[in-house]
C-alpha cells in the first residue's frame, strides 16, 4: 500500500522529467501579444495626452515648456505593463514590445523621452477627448499640462491657455513632505 503509493509518486515525478529552465543561461522568448515594455514611436505621436491621462500607474508625464514644445516622458520603473496606453493611443504610436528583462541600475535605461513640436489646434490646442467615444475614457485634464519630470509626478492641474506662471510654480515642485509633529 504505502510502498506502491510511493512508487506511483516517483513515477509521476520521473515521467515529467526536468521541467525547470536553465534561465538566465537559456533565453525564454515571450509569446506573441505579450505585454512587455511599451515603446513610443515619436514619428506617430501627436502629443494628445491620451496615454498620460489613462495610465493607471500615472507613469507617463507631460510638460509643456512653451506654446510649441511638449515633452512626454515615460518612466518604466513604475509601469505595470497593462497596455492601456497602447490601447487608447489614437495614433497607434505605442506598441507593447516583448522586452521584459528590464532590471538596470541606471534609471535612464528604462526612461523614454519625446520632445514634440505641437501645432496649435483650431479648437482647443489639445483635443484628444473628441476622438474617444467612451464617456468614461474621456480625459479629465485638457489643455496644457505641467507634470514634474524631475520628481516624476503627475500634477493634477491643467490650463486652457499656456500659462507661464503655472510652469514657474511647478518647476520646483517637491513631493509633500512628512507632517511635522
Amino acid at each position: 500500500m504505502w510502498l506502491w503509493n510511493k512508487i506511483k509518486q516517483l513515477a509521476i515525478s520521473f515521467r515529467a522529467g526536468v521541467v525547470t529552465l536553465r534561465y538566465p543561461f537559456e533565453s525564454r522568448p515571450a509569446p506573441e501579444d505579450f505585454r512587455g515594455q511599451p515603446v513610443w514611436d515619436h514619428a506617430k505621436c501627436i502629443g494628445c495626452a491620451g496615454c498620460a491621462n489613462h495610465c493607471p500607474a500615472r507613469t507617463i508625464f507631460l510638460r509643456d515648456i512653451c506654446q510649441e514644445v511638449r515633452i512626454l516622458l515615460y518612466d518604466s520603473s513604475r509601469c505595470t505593463y497593462c497596455g492601456r496606453c497602447a490601447d487608447l493611443c489614437p495614433e497607434k504610436a505605442i506598441t507593447m514590445s516583448d522586452r521584459f528583462e528590464l532590471a538596470t541600475d541606471n534609471r535612464q535605461d528604462i526612461t523614454q523621452t519625446i520632445e514634440l513640436f505641437m501645432m496649435t489646434c483650431q479648437r482647443c490646442g489639445r483635443c484628444y477627448d473628441l476622438e474617444i467615444k467612451n464617456y468614461i475614457d474621456r480625459l479629465s485634464r485638457l489643455g496644457y499640462r505641467y507634470d514634474s519630470l524631475e520628481v516624476r509626478k503627475v500634477i493634477q492641474r491643467s490650463t486652457a491657455d499656456f500659462s507661464p506662471e503655472e510652469l514657474e510654480k511647478t518647476i520646483g515642485y517637491e513631493r509633500p513632505g512628512r507632517l511635522d509633529k
Binding site: A57, R58, S77, R78, T80, D105, N106, V151, R175, P176
Partner: peptide, 14 residues
C-alpha cells in the same frame, strides 16, 4: 504596490 507619495523613488546606484 504603487506608492506614489513616498518621495523615495530615487534609484540607488550600486
Amino acid at each position: 504596490v504603487v506608492e506614489r507619495s513616498s518621495g523615495q523613488a530615487r534609484l540607488l546606484s550600486r
